[in-house]
Design a protein around this nucleic acid. Structure first.
Length: 223
DNA sequence: GACCAGGCACATC
DNA sequence: GATGTGCATGGT
């Protein structure tokens, strides 16, 4: 039986309202943030992005020309700064070589092709690619993350060991392909995950547990 | 001091 | 193919 994802969405939207994601001022800033936020608190990413902004590096050409050493120091607050500096350079090099540094040209590519191209960039995996497609490009791609995984598994709506594509499939099967809603849905899952479906305590005051006949979470305690 | 945070690549079995 | 590990900072 498929999970009640429309009802979940309606409930979350009613409870929290629109989340106004992604917190980035330009598509390029969103792309940079998508790399920097990998397994990292957004607050730390903000510091790194502010550093880049102060140096005038939040454009494809400027960041492409920055030295690796400067880049590492500026993004240090976001953690994993050496690997992330390499990943940003991989993305920038690809963008420069393939699209002459133009996001407009990049997003003229069909979503399936662009996704494959992004995944071929070293350091960009499924979530980062999808975040770029949805939040920077406005393409109707559902972004799965650790929160989506935990919130759904916690309530018994997916297997705890479901992988990225399985979880994405669950959403895509039950929802219309609407970029605005996909955008909002992902942000709402992060919100409820942070506020109520924490690792511990288990779903305190969670608005989604009310949808369960048992009135409480079904998943394993480590979800 | 332990644990957590919008992942990903790589080594090893 | 599954499972484990390195990567690093900053808040609670």
């Amino acid at each position: 039986m498929s999970p009640p994802l429309i009802e979940v969405y309606d409930r979350l939207l009613k409870r929290y309202g629109p989340q106004a994601w992604w917190p980035g001022q330009t598509p390029f800033e969103v792309m940079v943030g998508a790399i920097l936020v990998q397994n990292t608190n957004w607050r730390n990413v903000e510091r790194a992005i502010e550093n880049l902004r102060e140096e005038g590096l939040l454009t494809p050409n400027a960041l492409y020309q920055a030295s690796s050493g400067d880049l590492e120091e500026l993004i240090r607050p976001a953690g994993y700064f050496r690997v992330k500096a390499k990943r940003l350079r991989n993305l920038l090099t690809w963008l420069h070589d393939r699209y002459d540094g133009s996001l407009e040209a990049m997003f003229e590519t069909s979503v399936d092709t662009l996704r494959e191209e992004l995944l071929a960039v070293h350091g960009i995996g499924p979530e980062t690619a999808d975040a770029i497609l949805l939040y920077a490009g406005g393409m109707p791609v559902f972004v799965v993350d650790a929160y989506a995984h935990r919130v759904l598994a916690r309530h018994g709506w997916i297997d705890a060991d479901a992988d990225y594509y399985r979880i994405q499939e669950v959403f895509v099967e039950s929802l219309p392909a609407d970029a605005v809603m996909f955008n909002e849905y992902h942000a709402l899952l992060v919100r409820v995950g942070k506020e109520h479906c924490k690792p511990t305590p288990l779903c305190e005051g969670c608005p989604l547990c009310e949808l369960l006949p048992e009135g409480g979470p079904l998943g394993r305690e480590d979800f």
